[in-house]
């Protein structure tokens, strides 16, 4: 009953993300099955699982890059439906970092970071540039501000992507395999940036295979397989005492 649902879920503003009974199909293929998740503010969630398990699809549903067909998704108190205004509201408060960076190659780093604040939050240019420099300094590449993405290394580009997302001052950050496309020596610089972000209190959902990061920073680790959340626990329990067969199998393949 709906009243029971309301009694169980916490008052809206405390939860960053609520997913209730969510299903998604690609054509005939049932890609996400009965997803239920509640993320509190300042929580850091790491999502792992074999490829094709639907983990990227799930977080992409949170900022409506993918549409769900059944169930409810509530982000920061706003429910995601077909309503374009609601979608815009949600996207302003949710930042995303992609596996392949997706920086805008025809704009400088500075312009990449100030584009959305100027055109979406209607900030004056000077203010937007100050904000951009602040976050570029935070990710430790302020001197690259006037270069173009093509002139930077992969690790630098990903850090710029993080700064660009932060310039919108989102309440929630989504990371879709942020280090999978990087050369090994650059993975650390990006992970360090993400750790610092976590220390600053950002709500984060991270899809990744980097288990060291999970152990260091996550409040919860979620294991997904075949479109379902199979196991979820806090990191120590998750890694030391996995309970489900499939979790055990996956961890044995990853951690060697």
């Amino acid at each position: 009953m709906s009243q029971a649902a309301e009694a169980v879920s916490a008052p809206p503003s405390a939860l960053a993300v609520e997913i209730i009974g969510m299903h998604k199909w690609y054509g005939e293929f049932h890609v996400l099955r009965d997803i239920n998740l509640a993320v509190e503010r300042r929580e850091r969630i790491v999502i792992c699982g074999p490829s094709g398990s639907g983990k990227s699809t799930m977080i992409r549903c949170i900022n409506r890059l993918e549409e769900h067909q059944q169930g409810r998704i509530v982000v920061d108190g706003t429910e995601l439906t077909g309503d374009l205004k609601k979608i815009d509201e949600v996207r302003r408060e949710v930042g995303m970092v992609f596996q392949h960076f997706n920086l805008f190659p025809h704009l400088t780093i500075m312009e990449n970071c100030t584009l959305a604040p100027i055109w979406v939050r209607k900030m004056p240019k000077k203010e937007a540039e100050d904000v951009a420099m602040h976050f570029l300094t935070k990710v430790k590449i302020p001197e690259q501000a006037h270069k173009y993405p093509g002139q930077l290394s992969g690790g630098q580009q990903q850090r710029v992507a993080i700064a660009r997302a932060l310039c919108m001052r989102p309440k929630i950050m989504l990371f879709d395999e942020p280090t999978s496309a990087l050369d090994p020596e650059m993975v650390k610089e990006v992970l360090d940036t993400m750790v610092q972000l976590a220390d600053d209190g950002m709500t984060m959902l991270v899809v990744t295979h980097e288990m060291g990061f999970a152990r260091q920073v996550a409040n919860r680790v979620i294991f997904m397989d075949a479109g379902q959340i199979v196991e979820m626990n806090e990191p120590n329990e998750f890694f030391l005492h996995p309970k489900h067969e499939r979790t055990k199998l996956f961890l044995s393949q990853i951690l060697h």
Binding site: R91, R92, M96, N102, L103, F104, H106, L115, W119, V120
Partner: peptide, 30 residues
């Protein structure tokens, strides 16, 4: 123009018209 560009612009909160004007068309024109 790769799909990721449109997705990144959307994820930042840009509307469709703005995405076309500021991100897609400048790159497509090249």
């Amino acid at each position: 123009v790769s799909k990721g560009q449109t997705e990144a612009a959307g994820a930042l909160g840009l509307r469709t018209g703005q995405t076309l004007k500021l991100v897609v068309i400048p790159q497509a024109m090249r």
